[in-house]
Design a binder for these strands. Structure first.
Lengths: 242, 242
DNA sequence: TCAATCAATATTGTAGGACGATTTCCGCTG
DNA sequence: CAGCGGAAATCGTCCTACAATATTGATTGA
């Protein structure tokens, strides 16, 4: 019953295998587990995260978990209520529109920068690979994989652009929440249009056309807003404190 | 450092609206103490924050401090080096320019939104008060106060704009770092030009002219970039692992 | 029966200690 | 003086304990 990955602690000698993978602290592993768990659907927005349950499940101490939760709360991924615990954040309609409004200028900047700096075959290859990966995952309706690929697409875009502050600021994890709430219920047509957006952005970046990349992102966001407007109202929770 | 203790005892009655739960936790107080300490000059970029020293100084437990540090690290205010501890983050020239490039579109958005929503006398009054406060503090060369007022100006701008996600994303604390490094050495002329920028932004917002507000922010950032370009090179550290 | 009240329980917030892991510091040797 | 090795300092993680608060459940009265 217990997860078998509780080792690496009492081991006297340090196995080289463990040394390779262990650049990560326990706290970081926990944060990763939760964020990727959101993309994978293991954790859903609004879900309560009792400390005792999570520490047991991940085999870590309470202190480490609390550090990780503080980190995630700062990123807006979980919401901490004093004496009531941690919840996976939920986005109501208002927050979602605000989020899109905020993310759009950042994404446009990222696209412009990427287009300006996409000057090697290696970068072009990575950009194209990221876009293609989204397409494949999207067509296969592989939700978890799609969200991972989408995240990777933005990461690649930002990395090629070369602005390290942008990576810190872009609220990608927060949009993962939005996607997690929305992905399962959008229509096929909406999905297809959305997927096409990424390809168009990538094409403009690879063509090293900043203005076109900017426009492609704008268009992409317009489409996303349209999708949100067409969603049934019950996708979004009424604003409760969570 | 003055801990703000506002204990709104909500008793038994259940308020239907979302005005809820703000008691200050120790962790939050620590985070506040460090961020405001940066603006006040108590903590300077690059400074090491040994856990034992800080816990002693603030009279808190190590666990609470570590939670606060994780929060601050997520915001980019402190940098954590495994087994080496926490440092107040430093911005090299590259990071500073990246930061300005990232902040600018967000500030422009904030200004546009504020201009669109500045529809009551109360909001106009607050906007003007925030701008005037910067001016006073700036002229008096009161560095700590100036940085506080500047922060308040942006907070007001964002709040009037009404986009809650923007408040979460804008890297204002990170720019406090930049200001803390730069403020003491910019020339009088640079300072005066900079101060004028805030007034101009406020004026456009109060006039409910989004386009003008947008332009005012653009101009403001152009000036800031100019100031950075004129700074002596030794203001910025060579990128070391901190 | 149902609503309000109050006690029992569960969960979180904070403190403090223990110990291995890693870095840093410093003296020693060659 | 470069390199080596050990001592000291600091960090990462776990653990326990207890106070503060929220939630749950039982009791009571209308």
């Amino acid at each position: 019953m217990r997860p078998t990955k509780k080792n690496t602690r009492a081991g006297s000698g340090k196995t080289p295998a463990a040394a390779i993978t262990d650049a990560e602290s326990v706290t970081d592993r926990v944060a990763d587990a939760i964020t990727s768990g959101i993309r994978a659907g293991t954790f859903v927005p609004g879900q309560h995260l009792p400390e005792s349950a999570i520490t047991l499940r991940l085999g870590i101490s309470r202190g480490s978990l609390r550090e990780a939760l503080k980190h995630l709360a700062a990123a807006g991924i979980v919401t901490l209520n004093r004496f009531r615990g941690a919840y996976i954040s939920t986005l109501d309609l208002r927050s979602t529109l605000d989020l899109l409004e905020t993310l759009e200028p950042l994404a446009r900047l990222a696209a412009r920068l990427a287009a300006e700096h996409c000057d090697t075959n290696e970068k072009r290859r990575r950009m194209k690979a990221a876009a293609d990966a989204i397409d494949v995952a999207g067509r296969n309706r592989a939700r978890a994989e799609y969200l991972e690929r989408r995240r990777h697409f933005y990461d690649t875009l930002v990395e090629i652009g070369g602005n390290t502050e942008l990576a810190r600021v872009m609220p990608l994890s927060r949009t993962d929440l939005f996607r997690a709430q929305v992905e399962r219920i959008q229509t096929e047509r909406q999905r297809a249009l959305h997927l096409a957006g990424y390809s168009r952005i990538a094409a403009a970046v690879i063509a090293r056309d900043p203005a076109a990349a900017d426009r492609a992102v704008q268009r992409h966001f317009a489409g996303t807003r349209q999708t949100v407007a067409e969603l049934p109202a019950d996708v979004f929770p009424s604003q409760r404190r969570r």
